[in-house]
């Protein structure tokens, strides 16, 4: 059975290093293959890094600006323009709150929740639609020939959601233009107007009131 003692390990490997350190004929710090391999790796990886260094230049630029003696945060701070959002994208995200009943397809559930597709309730009167969302709706309602009897919660200040004018306008614009619906958008100012006109309303609407 072969094997080495711990002292053997030290002396044998110590000798290997000692032998290597002795001056030799010629120039042989690194065999050519190793030199080529390491240099190629460094070159390829450097090229890759330079091509994929997104954000590094901006970060370094910002760091140099902040570190500069003459830096004044009030003067040099980047001017922030108005925030531009895509109402459809925001509305799609907000619609997650509606999809449990009206379904991701907007088709509702037969007998339980009315569809949002191809109905005048969604694509028709804008003020009526805003009112329903702000204060909710309960009792029987006829949509596309079927009658539903349920309760939709309020998304305005009288309900638990308490959405802003912007949020309500986004989700309404979304449902008016998705699934083949092609009605015009609803802007936040419209929602604000309806909200101001119906401030004393505390209970959900019924169909006869609308």
């Amino acid at each position: 059975m072969s094997g080495a003692s711990d002292h053997d390990i030290q002396t044998v490997h110590g000798d290997i290093i000692a032998k290597q350190k002795e001056p030799k004929e010629g120039y042989q710090i690194m065999p050519l293959f190793m030199l080529a391999f390491v240099s190629t790796m460094v070159f390829v990886v450097a090229v890759y890094f330079i091509h994929n260094r997104a954000g590094l230049d901006e970060g370094l630029g910002l760091a140099t600006t902040i570190q500069h003696k003459g830096y004044n945060p009030d003067k040099h701070a980047v001017e922030e323009g108005p925030v531009i959002v895509d109402p459809i994208a925001m509305g799609r995200r907000l619609y997650n709150n509606c999809a449990a009943c009206h379904q991701p397809t907007g088709m509702g559930l037969p007998g339980a929740f009315p569809p949002l597709v191809g109905t005048d309730w969604v694509t028709g009167d804008e003020e009526r639609l805003v009112k329903i969302l702000l204060h909710g709706l309960q009792g029987p309602i006829e949509v596309n020939g079927n009658t539903y009897n349920g309760a939709m919660p309020a998304f305005g200040s009288s309900g638990a959601f308490n959405w802003s004018d912007e949020q309500i306008s986004y989700v309404l614009t979304y449902i008016r233009q998705e699934w083949g619906n092609a009605a015009g958008p609803i802007v936040p100012e419209q929602v604000a107007e309806v909200r101001a006109a119906t401030t004393d309303r505390t209970t959900p609407y019924t169909v006869s009131e609308l």
Partner: peptide, 21 residues
């Protein structure tokens, strides 16, 4: 995260070929 952080990680992983070898 910034692109250069990811690129640094990927580069370092490829340079690990040297010790691996």
């Amino acid at each position: 995260v910034p692109g250069w952080v990811q690129a640094l990680g990927v580069s370092a992983n490829f340079m690990m070929l040297v010790p691996l070898f």
